[in-house]
């Protein structure tokens, strides 16, 4: 639809030190209104300390059809995962 506002993807940082996480999407006429709408739609209950929005059209995404070549080769290489270390509690969120 021509008159539809563009779609924006919304990313929220839950607390300092954490990374922004994708929480959903919404429509807005421009970036500023997208941040305001995100504030109203996604942070009403104190969920965040920072908001990022990006127009959905600007996100380049991998194709689900490529999942074989992209991801399968790593399945058999467990040594690439640092899962053999115990992480001390004091380290906190990683």
């Amino acid at each position: 639809m021509k008159n539809e506002w563009p779609l924006w993807e919304v990313f929220i940082r839950g607390q300092h030190g954490m990374s922004h996480r994708h929480v959903g999407s919404l429509h807005a006429p421009d970036a500023e209104m997208a941040i305001k709408n995100a504030r109203d739609v996604y942070t009403r209950r104190n969920e965040g300390v920072s908001i990022w929005v990006v127009e959905a059209a600007h996100i380049a995404a991998s194709s689900p059809g490529d999942k074989g070549p992209l991801y399968e080769p790593s399945n058999s290489k467990v040594y690439r995962h640092p899962t053999f270390f115990d992480i001390p509690e004091d380290v906190g969120a990683m």
């Binding site: 506002w5 919404l26 429509h27 807005a28 305001k36 709408n37 109203d40 739609v41 009403r44």
Partner: peptide
Amino acid sequence: PVLEEDIALAN
């Protein structure tokens, strides 16, 4: 007129 405005107005 749109969902986002509906939520914002209710807030």
